[in-house]
């Protein structure tokens, strides 16, 4: 589902990722591990084409991302559920509206949006907060809303960039549970984290990075 073949993506200061090769299956969750600056976010950004790939190929669900034209990038991004470390929720919208946003972007009819958003909010246990603004809920709740926003469009690929960043251990565990549950629907999940104690007990696959390179 997510296929990296000798991928190199660098920034102007020569930082980045170098010669990465890995594969994540449909319905699999993998953790990108490494300290700050190891290149975890760069891997995710390279997938959703926020930075260019210099060498190698990234294939997502059979699509070679290097062949996607610039004007088609938005449509490609719609097939990916992305969860950001800083949540990136829109503060002037309610929880419901935030979760509904990707569906509006995809042009989903209003009735379907209503049903899907209610379903996903119920699934993550935050239906009661649907009328709240992100600024009036806790960090953990905000992160779960961000996950709901990624899950609501039933993506084939979910990318999570440090989704447990500043959260306590219990909340972090719940977040990883949520992401793991998304694999049951067949999604491939790639989660970047530096919180090794959080993911170690789960016995899942790790892709360990250091200085932009993959550690064997």
């Amino acid at each position: 589902m997510i296929d990296f073949k000798n991928v190199t993506a660098t920034f102007s200061d020569n930082a980045g990722i170098f010669d990465l090769t890995f594969h994540i299956e449909r319905g699999e969750i993998a953790f990108l591990m490494g300290p700050t600056g190891a290149g975890k976010s760069t891997v995710l950004r390279a997938i959703y084409k926020d930075i260019p790939v210099m060498k190698g190929r990234i294939i997502i669900d059979g699509v070679d991302t290097s062949k996607i034209k610039k004007r088609k990038i938005p449509f490609f991004r719609r097939s990916i559920g992305t969860i950001f470390q800083d949540f990136k929720l829109l503060d002037d919208r309610t929880v419901f509206e935030n979760v509904a946003l990707p569906l509006h972007i995809n042009g989903v009819p209003g009735k379907v949006i209503n049903r899907k958003v209610h379903e996903v909010l119920e699934r993550i246990g935050l239906l009661d907060l649907k009328k709240e603004r992100p600024t009036s809920i806790s960090g953990g709740e905000q992160q779960r809303i961000a996950i709901a926003r990624a899950l609501v469009k039933d993506p084939k690929v979910i990318l999570a960039d440090e989704p447990t960043g500043n959260l306590d251990l219990v909340t972090s565990d719940e977040i990883v549970d949520l992401l793991e549950s998304a694999t049951q629907g067949g999604a491939a999940v790639l989660m970047a984290t530096h919180n090794f104690p959080l993911i170690r007990p789960r016995h899942k696959r790790f892709i360990e990075l250091s200085g932009g390179r993959q550690l064997v």
């Binding site: 992305t82 990136k88 829109l90 972007i105």
Partner: peptide, 16 residues
């Protein structure tokens, strides 16, 4: 601009 960046990452076209 922050919201616009988020919309772009969620797959919004410039027209949207």
């Amino acid at each position: 601009r922050g919201d616009i960046g988020t919309l772009r990452l969620l797959g919004a076209t410039d027209r949207f």
